[in-house]
Amino acid sequence: MTSVDRSPRAGDGVASPARGSTPSPPVAQAGGPRRSRRRHDGWWPVLFVLPTMVGVVVFYLWPIVQTGYFSFTEWGAFGGQTWVGTENYVRLANDPDLGTAVVNTLVYTAIVLLGIPIAMVVASLLSRPGMRFTAFYRVLFFMPYVAMPTAVAMVWRLIFNGDFGILNWLLGLVGIDGPAWTSTPGFALVAVSVVGLWTSLGFAVIILSAGLRNIPPELYEAASLDGATAWRQFRSVTVPLLTPSVFFVTVITVINGFQLFDLLYALMGQANPAIQQTQSLVYLFYNEAFLRNDKGFAAAIAMVILLIVGAVTLLQFRMQRRWVTYA
């Protein structure tokens, strides 16, 4: 798994998230098949996808190319670049903050991923026959996901406040003297992760609920005719048929986890004494790009983030064959 496969399938794997869980279409090979299809359809198909492609190229691909270029430059205070070669990357490799940021981002992502099993339990409860107010509960779980991260952070800051927060008041009732959650190194990362988990739970619940509904009831019927217990039904019918949804939620959660910024920034603030030990990769990027105004160096960080997210996503898609069952 460690060696990167250069076959066309590998590239196809990266491109797939947008298509969700649909099976990958055959990759157009250079040569005959493509030319013959073109003769059939003419330029029409190209025209139809052109508007989207233009958007993707102008707003996604071109900026990535530009960022790649900028990562080899140094910026003046108000723009103007000079080519400095690989200096930014050398500096980044020797920057102790990079290691901290990578570890923090991984820890955050790991904690937020713990939300998926929780979401599975919640989704199963919500789809139990006879459960009342399911629509209400679903809205309740989904609300944090659609609320603005800044607004969410403002509320949690009040909860986490070391001297006057609700959390420490509750802990005080049972005799525990809680820390300043969002400004003590270590605790701060856990605090941010818990809020991240809480906000993303609703998304996972909705996707998994939909996945549960897609499981044909006949399968359970057949299973019970064969004498399968409820536990056996869950293990042999529910879990395998839910894996495509779990896979989708995992990929999205991991990508979102690697992009941790707004929640961290709003919850902690840039003057926080614990920010250096708690910063994520994207925070590191923001700090260099906009606070220190070192945009060339920041572009190098952005390229590293792109590589890491690309590699992790690729890995996930290659692993999926081992555990994801498509019905």
Binding site: R157, F160, N161, G162, D163, F164, G165, P179, A180, T182, S183, T184, G269, A271, N272, P273, A274
Partner: peptide, 10 residues
């Protein structure tokens, strides 16, 4: 004086 952490929270 409150600590730097306390001054950051409040």
């Amino acid at each position: 004086s409150p600590t730097v952490q306390q001054l950051s929270d409040t």
